[in-house]
Write a protein that binds this DNA or RNA. Structure first.
Length: 435
RNA sequence: UCCCCGAUAGCUCAAUCGGCAGAGCGGCUGGCUGUUAACCAGUAGGUUGUAGGUUCGAGUCCUACUCGGGGAGCCA
């Protein structure tokens, strides 16, 4: 009976056939331990001399790492085996003997691993991370589906730059130039006027010359946009959203979190409501810390937070924290100023706990056409490019709000990783585009 | 774009004051009946990133370049 390792417990004391690859081999002369992976999991296969044909035993001694193999054997519960189950080998077929495999069980440098990313994906840590990423993606779709959001796919080719061209990738498009999308938001706003509740989910591109553990040039964004929603509504949506995803990963990817040695007690605390503080309160926190001898540089009201401030603020909380109402001058043109204080806008950033920093940025959008036109003019943005966007205010404008969540930053935090590049199958960074 | 660090065997790294380039892993050969990145013995494996300079002598010091890493700013 054909079986996948992921479901091996269902086949206890039965004979199964597993098609996979030889992950590792340990041998003691008259007993071989083959660690076999099939993509769905890892299992130890035992080959004892005398209990199998002499030819089978000899063959097992000669199979190289990562050779593709089919094994047939009996599934047995075994506490000494890494996965709790073991396969007693009956027969084995080598599909393709692998050449000497470049990746070893011992340590490797990051440059070597990234150059061999196509092979590195087979190793345990990348395998666990990408499976968690998949669970996050499934959770995102299920969450919005359960709330009757429509998935609206924003274009990847976009016409002339809406927010300036410095961080956009330019691509030739027949006899003109277009840019790779850096956000689906403006299209999402059009979508929410048509479908009320929508979300976009797709790759986005930023040509920022950023060289940090939090940046990729190609990354995936989820951007819900909701008609008639105010800032508070969107913060509630965001905390429910993040809570749902984290709890789903805890429920379905416990084994993978353990492989990554993630402290799940931290994740177990991720439940609504999250903390909420204003930008002004956050500035005060940083000041107070500095007065009592802290090392985080102090900021004046009106300055945007840098990495040290953001890390400090997030580290003061055991759950993610919303920082809302930033100074108007720090934020994008489409954000609506607070009617009670026009110096700040109705925006919110969600900072992940443990110093992982911003995972969500959102706001209530400016729905008044005059205010929006004034802002576009003031920031020197091309008016023609925004005409269709202004139409959304001309024809039945309503308050609306939305946010953007960076998939890879979320996965980095959930997995407790040091660097974002491990959360996407083939990372694109400023100086690496292959494999 | 700016600042800091690095490049030695297939991989991860040593090499004292400028004085014979070495270990583990991986490969190969052999041993081992419960291994967990198995272990033990033997063995092969080098244009020290590139180009130049100083020196009796350079992996080591100097200059430039290339590639990579870490951080800043900006952001998700």
């Amino acid at each position: 009976m054909k079986a996948y390792i992921e479901k091996i417990a269902d086949y206890k004391d039965k004979e199964v056939e597993i098609s996979g690859w030889l992950y590792n081999k340990r041998s003691s002369g008259k007993i071989h331990f083959l660690e076999v992976r099939d993509g769905t999991g890892f299992i130890q296969v035992v080959v004892v001399k005398g209990q199998v044909d002499e030819g089978v035993f000899e063959l097992c001694d000669k199979i190289s790492q990562e050779s593709s193999i089919k094994v047939v054997g009996n599934v047995r519960e075994e506490p000494r085996a890494p996965g709790g189950y073991e396969l007693d080998l009956k027969s084995i077929q080598v599909i393709a003997q692998a050449e000497v495999y470049p990746l070893q069980k011992k340590e490797h440098g990051i440059d070597f691993l990234l150059s061999n990313r196509h092979l590195w994906l087979r190793s345990k840590a990348p395998w666990a991370i990408i499976r968690i990423r998949d669970e996050v993606i499934r959770s995102i779709i299920d969450f919005f589906h359960s709330k009757d959001f429509i998935k609206l796919d924003a274009p990847i080719f976009t016409p002339s730059a809406c927010e300036g061209t410095t961080t956009l990738f330019e691509v030739p498009y027949f006899d003109q130039k277009v840019y790779l999308s850096q956000s689906g938001q403006l299209y999402g706003e059009a979508g929410c006027m048509a479908f009320n509740k929508i979300y976009t989910f797709g790759p986005t591109f930023r040509a920022e010359a950023s060289k940090t553990r939090r940046h990729l040039t190609e990354f995936w964004q989820i951007e819900p946009e909701v008609a008639y929603a105010k800032l508070d509504d969107i913060m509630e949506l965001a905390e429910q959203f993040v809570t749902y995803i984290v709890q789903r990963v805890l429920a379905n990817r416990q084994k993978e979190l353990k492989m990554l040695e993630r402290d799940v007690t931290i994740l177990e605390k991720i439940k609504v409501p999250f903390y909420r503080i204003s930008y002004s309160e956050a500035i005060e926190m940083v000041k107070k810390q500095s007065v009592s001898g802290g090392e985080v540089p102090i900021l004046q009201w009106g300055d945007d937070f840098g990495a040290p401030q953001e890390t400090y603020i997030a580290s003061q909380f055991d759950k993610p924290v919303f920082v809302h109402r930033y100074p108007t001058k720090c934020k994008a043109f489409y954000m609506k100023p607070d009617p009670e204080n026009p110096d700040v806008v109705l925006c919110t950033d969600l900072l992940a706990s443990e110093g992982y920093g911003e995972i969500i940025g959102g706001s209530q959008r400016e729905e008044n056409i005059q205010a929006l036109e004034k802002k576009i003019e003031k920031e020197g943005l091309p008016k023609e490019a925004h005409e269709w966007y202004l139409d959304l205010r001309r024809y039945g404008s309503v308050p609306h709000s939305g946010f953007g969540l960076g998939l890879e930053r979320l996965v980095t935090w959930i997995c407790g990783l040091h660097h974002i590049r491990e959360t996407i199958p083939f990372p694109r960074t400023i100086d690496r585009v292959s494999p």
